[in-house]
Design a protein around this nucleic acid. Structure first.
Lengths: 121, 121, 121, 121
DNA sequence: GTGGTCTAGACCACA
DNA sequence: GTGGTCTAGACCACC
């Protein structure tokens, strides 16, 4: 996990994103134990409170579950969460497409762009 | 024009967005004279400095032009506004597509959905 | 307002209680402007974040309302809040009375004790 | 006996309270032998140290007595338990009464309410 | 060892 | 000037 303290993205959000990434990629699986707050803090050379904030953030999103004295774990119910996120993303795309149509952009232009970007990803 | 001081969107940005909206809707047309800073400030019950900031912001985006003796006007060349909005929407779509790819959604699913919604629109 | 840093009651709660006290006693009235976070912090010789935490706490209880850049104010709707608190306190007393009855304490003993304490208050 | 590890009440206190409850209800009587530390720990699926802490806590309150060779027993003299509970309830009532006085509720109102509820009980 | 709380100070956006 | 955010470190309860 890499943290860049000089970025203007808050450190705690960088950690949040790294975690989400690892979960989506399957490096971290449902039920897995997360590194301890202080362990990770030492690893990344940041203050434990910063890591705590990241974990807390992910708890609020139901991605992590924490049990005092045992540690923090990846939630077992990530499926529904994923589904929700997919729907939300699709909704946003639909909304934006609607706006583009109003502004005179053609369907072809949009589809073409998506396909082009898809490959690059 | 409505300003909500209790929102967490900065007042000056609320004014900026209202202006953009009115221009896109045609309420304000290229070449039109904008209300004076002090007049609008009094109208909205905000500090004149705040309106000034909004106008300044819109000037930087080439949407307004200020002639120090005559006042502030809507630019005759609004392509940038439209173009900016189009690009922003396309960027959002690209971003969301990226997320969907990570979450395991196929390109076909996305394109199909957009096409379907496009017709209904 | 007096803060005792050596108590084991957190400073931020001491501030919270002092504020509640002043509101109940009428020193602070609905609509009044609270001292600024940094002003009060300097006064009490504590960190501004500590005062902020207190104000935040009182906001969550709907006792204060804060407007960025203008300041923090005593809520105008304290009546309902007060009524709620009164009911809750009465409920608690009823509950405890119930427990005492089960444990064999007589009604007289309870009433007598309350009357005695009432005067001392 | 049920323990909920996800609560924010410490496990050892949950055990303490369950024990007190059972004693007050008569499920555990003065002189009864308590389950062994290791046995109860296994039963509740908690660390034996945690059960030990609970027993120790109850010993300090004179509710349990440990004979190092025979085991742990419910004290024959449980007055202190009852007295403690009664005092705690009375303290709570006093505290709430104090709050009510501050909020402008009259002594009569409180006494009247208690008497009314007492009969219904 | 685990996570949780409190206090702290530097920095930022807004008006 | 106002409040808001981020990072920090010391201390604590629990197991």
């Amino acid at each position: 996990m890499q943290i860049d303290g000089s970025k203007n993205v808050p450190i705690y959000l960088q950690i949040v994103n790294e975690c989400k990434e690892k979960i989506l990629l399957g490096t971290l699986k449902p039920g897995d134990k997360m590194p301890s707050i202080r362990g990770l803090a030492k690893d990344l050379e940041v203050n434990p409170n910063t890591v705590k904030k990241s974990y807390h953030f992910l708890e609020r999103e139901k991605i992590l579950i924490t049990d005092s004295t045992k540690g923090t774990f990846v939630s077992n119910n990530l499926e529904s969460l994923l589904e929700g996120k997919i729907n939300s993303s699709l909704e946003t795309i639909t909304l934006k497409t609607k706006e583009l149509k109003k502004m005179g952009v053609s369907l072809g232009t949009i589809l073409e762009r998506i396909e082009k970007k898809w490959k690059v990803l």
